[in-house]
Write a protein that binds this DNA or RNA. Structure first.
Length: 290
DNA sequence: GTTGAGCGTT
């Protein structure tokens, strides 16, 4: 929802979007509007929020009607302290619903949804780093970026590792429900949230239902776990102890229908390529093995 | 009352 109360973005075309980073989670569009409106005609102020919680995600979009005004706002407000935090103002790189934004944050046209050309709005870090690097170079003030970057990455890796090991220790399946993917932080509170929400959701999405009656699909290769046809085979195999000479015993026990069927199939297959005698021999071997 | 390096409203 935009600052002006309508649902959806207003007047998408021909506006210049600024991305305002590092705002307080309590900062509202109403706080930002007067600040930015000083430098030109602000068409919209929008603060993305977490879908579930409604929390601010810590950044905002301010849309100007005119580029020069937006530019001026960038110059004047980038680095300004708002609500005790030094905000960063820059031209927005991406647009809502994947509009292409030209240089200077102007929304030009919606990107077609086809995959054929261009890239979808995948979160590939590459293009972002471009503008970030450029941007970071520009602002050499504040705490040294290099260290910050390194720390950020280290922190990320650490988090990832932690997550990985956690998920490893908990049974596999790394799938995260899509609702969580776009969530903002990776902070400890998020971990907390995640943990909590998992325990709240009935039967966590990760853990498979412990029900022992998982019928295996008979014609597919088994999913590595659970009751599989292999297990059947083992059972059947276990009927015949390995050490026993099969020849002596074969008559005394009747092979299960499944074994018989398998053998027949095998025989037919073998006979396709070999002459009957060889096929019969091989079959015999197979039966003995079984 | 928490978070934080993040690009979009249903």
């Amino acid at each position: 929802m935009s600052h002006f109360g309508r649902s959806g973005p207003p007047d998408i075309k021909d506006t210049f979007s600024l991305l305002v980073l590092n705002i307080t989670f309590r900062t509202t569009a109403d706080d930002l509007f007067p600040l930015f409106d000083k430098y030109g005609k602000v068409v919209d102020v929008f603060i993305p929020r977490d879908r579930r919680t409604g929390d601010s995600r810590g950044f905002a979009f301010v849309r100007y009607k005119y580029q020069d005004e937006a530019q001026k706002a960038v110059e004047k407000l980038d680095g300004r302290v708002v609500d005790g935090r030094e905000i960063m103002v820059q031209f927005a790189k991406y647009g809502p619903n994947a509009e292409r934004i030209s240089h200077k944050g102007r929304i030009e046209e919606p990107v077609h949804r086809s995959r054929s050309k261009g890239r979808s709005r995948s979160r590939s870090p590459r293009p972002r780093s471009d503008y970030r690097d450029r941007d970071y170079r520009k602002r050499s003030r504040s705490r040294s970026r290099g260290r910050n970057d390194r720390e950020r990455h280290r922190g990320r890796d650490r988090d990832r590792d932690r997550y990985r090991s956690r998920s490893r220790s908990r049974s596999r399946s790394r799938s995260v429900s899509p609702g969580y993917r776009r969530e903002r932080g990776r902070g400890k509170y998020d971990d907390e949230r995640r943990r909590r929400s998992r325990s709240i959701e009935s039967g966590s999405p990760v853990r498979r239902s412990p029900s022992p009656r998982r019928s295996p699909s008979p014609d597919k290769t088994p999913p590595s776990r659970g009751v599989s046809p292999d297990a059947h085979n083992q059972k059947e195999r276990s009927i015949t102890p390995r050490s026993v000479s099969p020849r002596g015993r074969r008559d005394s026990r009747s092979p299960s229908p499944r074994v018989v069927a398998d053998c027949k199939m095998m025989q037919q297959l073998l006979m396709l390529f070999l002459d009957d005698a060889v096929a019969a021999k091989l079959l015999l071997c197979a039966v003995e093995l079984l």
